[in-house]
Write a protein that binds this DNA or RNA. Structure first.
Lengths: 196, 196
DNA sequence: GTCAATTAGCGCAAAAATGAGCTAATTCGA
DNA sequence: TCGAATTAGCTCATTTTTGCGCTAATTGAC
């Protein structure tokens, strides 16, 4: 989420095949390495991101999708708070691209990465339709307006204020406190339920 | 679906490691082979099943899950009509195990196959909650009772007759004909919408 | 031929969900 | 200080969904 829009993080290929082009971060799997460990290693090395729990998405297996030879990609997806990308984005080789505002950039990604992004967006939209901020992007505590703004950005459409509130409130824990210093009527503050 | 119960097809390992044990059918991926092609080859060779379109499930990557060494399994799932398994089941090395009636058999599967089965059941339950017989198990045309019986077997619970009918009718194509020779009041006959 | 059993179709009351308007409580700019 | 702007909470009318009972239409056993 950058500037209120769902975005995908791309890295610029440093060397070798297609040097200079932008693509999704990736890495080869080391022997006996768990896929999730490989994903975390890749995020740390290429984008300076740590402490995440990416979820497995889909295996992309077109034998012609990579000029370097036959590889299969086990795509993963994660929602990462913008704040966690600060140091990564300071680098010239890392950037965010809005999924909805820059669809042509996404469409031009090599290695079938556009399909991967589409799949990831779909998966996140489903997850966000079912639970409050499952990607834990919001700093706690937050208001329902904060939550709804985030969910509208992920969904890519406006959500009905009261319908949204009724659906989410039972899935949140009230803090008993009210927002302060924000524009408009003060709002109740919420945190996520633990263990989820 | 065997005897009205959701079942998983197992094969008996013919040779090598764990010979004689029952497990999910599997195969090694050949170079440059599409995963879906490998799945189809495996089903044909080990269970005599053809003409299916299995869907990708999840990659299981525990490095210790296979005594033979480090392998990753890209699990797939498919719903197969019992009739299509006739010749396969004639073999001593192929059997069906009910997911709900024989949970302990499923739990004892080697190679983490129990997790794979659980994942597959969950995925099929979601698919069946959203569309009429997406696995195309029912011979067309069928009655709503036929459909509901199938969906109840997949869901593992009773479904409300009228609620189910209202949800499914808009997603089906009426044939204009009525059932005949069946017990009880004759029912309208349906077929699936094409292109799905 | 009759009646029990089974299954279907539908109407309707009840329950649940939705959307919007109204009042309330703030902040911010003039 | 006041009023516009913004946001929240809630009520209520409306809409939608659900569950069930009643009637209907068959088959099968006796």
């Amino acid at each position: 989420m950058s500037e209120g829009a769902l975005s995908v993080l791309l890295v610029q290929r440093a060397s070798g095949d297609r040097a200079g082009e932008w693509a999704l971060p990736g890495t080869f799997l080391r022997e006996r390495e768990l896929l999730s460990d490989a994903v975390l290693r890749c995020l740390r090395e290429k984008a300076g991101i740590t402490g995440r729990v990416p979820q497995q998405l889909h295996v992309f297996d077109d034998p012609d999708r990579d000029d370097r030879g036959w590889v299969l990609s086990v795509a993963h997806v994660d929602m990462v708070p913008l704040a966690a990308l600060e140091s990564a984005l300071a680098s010239d080789g890392v950037r965010l691209v809005s999924v909805m505002a820059d669809p042509e950039v996404v469409a031009r990604l090599p290695y079938g990465h556009a399909d991967i992004v589409a799949n990831a967006v779909g998966r996140m939209r489903v997850a966000y339709a079912e639970a409050p901020d499952p990607g834990a992007l919001l700093e706690e505590p937050f208001t329902l307006k904060d939550l709804r703004d985030l969910h509208e950005a992920v969904a890519g459409e406006t959500l009905m204020r009261d319908t949204f509130r009724r659906f989410m409130e039972p899935k949140l824990v009230g803090t008993g406190k009210m927002s302060d210093g924000t524009r408009g009527r003060p709002s109740r503050l919420w945190v996520r339920m633990k263990g989820q």
